[in-house]
Design a protein around this nucleic acid. Sequence first.
DNA 1: GCCAACGTTGGC
DNA 2: GCCAACGTTGGC
Length: 175
Amino acid sequence: MPRRPFACFLVKSEPDAYSIDDLARERRAPWDGVRNYQARNIMRDRMKKGDPVFFYHSNASPPGLVGLARVASAAKPDPTQFDPSSPAYDPRATPDAPRWWLVDLEFVEKFPRFVPLAELRADPALDGMELLRRGSRLSVQEVEDRHALRLLELAGARSRWAKRIRAELAARTNA
DNA sequence: GCCAACGTTGGC
DNA sequence: GCCAACGTTGGC
């Protein structure tokens, strides 16, 4: 039984709250505190262990694409929803009926080239990306193959794993 | 700091 | 089910 082909994703984070450097330091982190149903559904239903995840800095100056991570776990309940001392506490959730889900992310690389939002917007190859939609606020998004391939090119991704992903995306996109 | 766009809540 | 009010996101 062949493994499902990977799908690509993107997460946004405000670097003041949690940056790519934080993930680089921690190596691996639960992507907790997400309180949007669409974003939850993507983590719970779409992300699989081993999928590539682009890391984007929002509310930064300038905002832009900074690195690459990888889904490192299956989806599981977000423990912060049960913790009254957490800002992400949700009194409606119970361990028997969790409302919010997360996956763990692991650090892969900080890109050699930071790609500012303005450059992403100016690139015709990225037309149609969720991130670039007017008024888009979704903090966990799926990324189409052709867009993922372009992002890896623009950022000059150089990790061995990124190169493998890139080759596979190129093959898939041409198929 | 401003403000447009968005998602959620809650009255009806 | 509608929709106004509200809080949040995030670019600029």
